[in-house]
Amino acid sequence: MDANKFEYLLRQGDNALILSQQLSQLCGKGPALEEDMALTNVALDLLGQTRMWLTYAGEIEGHGRDEDRLAYLRDTRDFRNCLLVEQPNGDYAQTLTRQFLFDTWHYFLMRGLLASRDRRIAEIAEKSIKEVTYHLRRSGDLVVRLGDGTDVSRRKMQDALDELWTYAGEMFLYDDVDLAMVAQGVAPAAEGLRDAFMIHVAEVLDEATLTMPPVDAYVQRGGKQGRHTERIGYILAEMQFLQRAYPGVEW
């Protein structure tokens, strides 16, 4: 088994899975019908991508774990999502800012993975990028409108941005797993991703009349290695309840 690749695939799958789970909690509670449907659509897109990542992860691991077992029967420390996606939905400014930061990184990562030397990963990226392109367009459009909106909406957006910014950098902190994937030509290097991310974020925030936090701000880390915030436990408790209470149940 290629342990590094297994880890790398879990990270991709868990990012999509946890964010999808969080967004689906807003189903029926969005601030407007149109937003509600859009959020749920994004949640479904991400769940579909999760399946592709975790299915492949299970195959690489070779112990017969499928995507369902990986999603529903791992505990908090075995999750490899970055801290950003487990931040609370909060108010809509927080939901949206988290989405925008994630979408921007996600988009440039998928673009990089199109050229992955692992054909399976390149195929997953190709399937995902059409969805992700739309996610990014939508969340960016909304950041501009709420940032350059009323005094209240601008303040809420700036607060959310300042709060979540500290979690945005983790995606670009490459550890041995990430570096092994770069060395194998499987994953794109951090520097190019980070530059593309910063340029796009700066453009959108400028149009949104929001102030971009310092590029070299302090970065929270640990999620990718399984050291999470307290919140992951609550997310998994709800997401995994059925399989934990009724092992093997199907519908």
Binding site: A32, L33, E34, M37, A38, N41, R137, D141, R145
Partner: peptide, 20 residues
């Protein structure tokens, strides 16, 4: 029909509400 703050968002919302 749908609600949206401007034309661009109306297109986005239409995509989400009517073209899934």
């Amino acid at each position: 029909s749908l609600h949206a703050p401007d034309a661009e968002m109306a297109i986005n919302n239409a995509r989400d509400v009517y073209t899934r």
